[in-house]
Each structure stands twice: as C-alpha cells, then as structure tokens.
Amino acid sequence: MSCLITPTQVTIEFTSEDTVLLTWPEIIDNQQHQKILWLDAQLSKVLAEIVLDSVIGFNSIMIVYQPQLISLLKLKTVITQLISKTPERFEATIGNTIKIPVYYSTESGWDLAQVAKSTKLTKEQVINLHSNDIYRAYAQGFTPGFCYLAKLANQLTLPRKKVPRTKVPAGAVAIAGQQSAVYPEATPGGWHILGQTPLPMFQKTGSGLITTIKVGDLVQFYPITKQEFEDQGGQLISEQA
C-alpha cells in the first residue's frame, strides 16, 4: 500500500476554496515543529496581504488565504520555495516557558487512581512523571485556549476514555495518548484527569481573547497543595456521583 501518511517531504494540498494544508511526516518532533513555525512566520511575512489566518498542528499547518488575490500555481510556488529555504536545524526554542500549578489529588484528579492502576504505577509516581517533564505546545484548538502538549512519558501513555465525560471542569489537567492539556472551559472530554489548576487558560478582552499558552511555548506543571490551590483562586470541582 502506498505510504500516503508518512511522506518524506512536505505534502501541499488545496483542501478547500480558501485553505491549503501542508503536512510533514507523521511524528511529534521538536525540530520538525520548529520548521513548521518558521514556515508559518515566513508565509505571514511574504504573503501578508493574502494570508488571513493559519492553524498549526503537530505535523501540519493550514493556511487560510484570499483566493481572489493569488492563483493556485503562484501560491504553490511561493510555498515550495519557502519549504526549500527552511533551515535544517534550529538551535534553541523560541517560545516562553509557562509554569502551571496543579493540585494533584484523587478529589481534583478524577482519574488519578484509575491512571495509577492502568499504568501499574503509584499515584505519587504518576504525579512525579507528569510534573517532571517539560512539554512543548504543539497545537492549539478544539476550544479557545486548549493547547496540545507533548510528549508525555511513555509510562503514562493511555488511550482516550472509551466513553467521554459530558462535562470536564475548566482547569482540569489531563492526559491522553502522548499528550497532556488543560481544559480551558467546562466541555465534554475523553482525556484522563490528573488534577486541577487555578491558572486560567485564557482571558477575554473587550474585543478578543488572550491565551495563556501559545503554540511553540514550553510548559511545565508543578504540584501545589489544596490550600495553595484555593489561595490562588482555584475552585475545586468534584466529580458528581
């Protein structure tokens, strides 16, 4: 079978009348992701009047552009040229480091006990593994301010819950597959909840919204006590029986 999903080069697809999707090999990789961010920045600069928006994924980027201002051929040429100019290696990460306090416990981490059981670790080991690593924000989406952070320690890798919860609380710190995330708002969700953070994931402004984490940032979780959680304005939400 042809290996469509793991191209060695970047695939360029015109996915709708006004979007083009660029896809890199199907891996979560810091260096590859920095190439994607570099290309995003270049495209916004070179095609400033034509590109309206872009959405960055783990190994992809979708560009929203104005089709009335550029032909498909010209756009493809510009993209191909920029891809060929992408630096081979990036030395340092450009993003900020965001530290996120987490009250890990069985009352705030609705799935902590189950995760410990499934991974054959103690709860303390789960907390240590989750809070020891530094994660990279590879993508943002699903809901405003929801950042996909990777990569999670192999020992913590679990599939999504078979039946998603209809409501996961705002501030829930959760894991699924190789990823971790903080739920910015109460939404349905199928990830395993390890704890809750008092830190909001976005602030609404009069005309828009500012997110706490931006794609490309580094993120580290650190444990706090229930008292510290409450002192920092956290409102603990327990799971309804």
């Binding site: 079978m1 469509l4 999903i5 793991t6 996915t15 709708s16 979007t19 999707l21 896809t23 199907e26 979560i28 959405v55 960055i56 994924g57 783990f58 190994n59 992809s60 980027i61 979708m62 993508a139 989406g141 996909y148 597959g177």
Partner: peptide, 15 residues
C-alpha cells in the same frame, strides 16, 4: 482508516 495517521490536524468548514 489504514491510510490515515493518528495526529490531530487543522480542519475546514465542510470537511
């Protein structure tokens, strides 16, 4: 399904 990768990607209106 066999030809699709695991990683989430940006989606369009109408996908």
């Amino acid at each position: 399904t066999q030809l699709t990768g695991d990683l989430s990607k940006p989606v369009n209106f109408g996908q």
